[in-house]
Amino acid sequence: MITSIIVWGSLFAAAIFTVAYLLSPRLRAQVEQPKYQFQRQLENFDNSATQETKRGQQ
């Protein structure tokens, strides 16, 4: 009983999430947004670190 709930519950939740992701461009954008934002944060950090290093070298 419990194991069935876990199997079907987790598969159902994953299926709902997947279908919603595939059907909704808005959700897709929302879900994928953080990776781009994080990439910008990384680049800003690396740019800053690089500048600091170059200043240190000068």
């Binding site: 808005r26 959700l27 954008a29 929302q30 994928e32 947004q33 781009y36 934002q37 990439q39 910008r40 680049e43």
Partner: peptide, 15 residues
């Protein structure tokens, strides 16, 4: 590619 996604940020606050 990163810049093109910056606009999405504000539009997705509904969730």
């Amino acid at each position: 590619s990163l810049a093109s996604h910056s606009e999405l940020h504000d539009g997705a606050r509904g969730l």
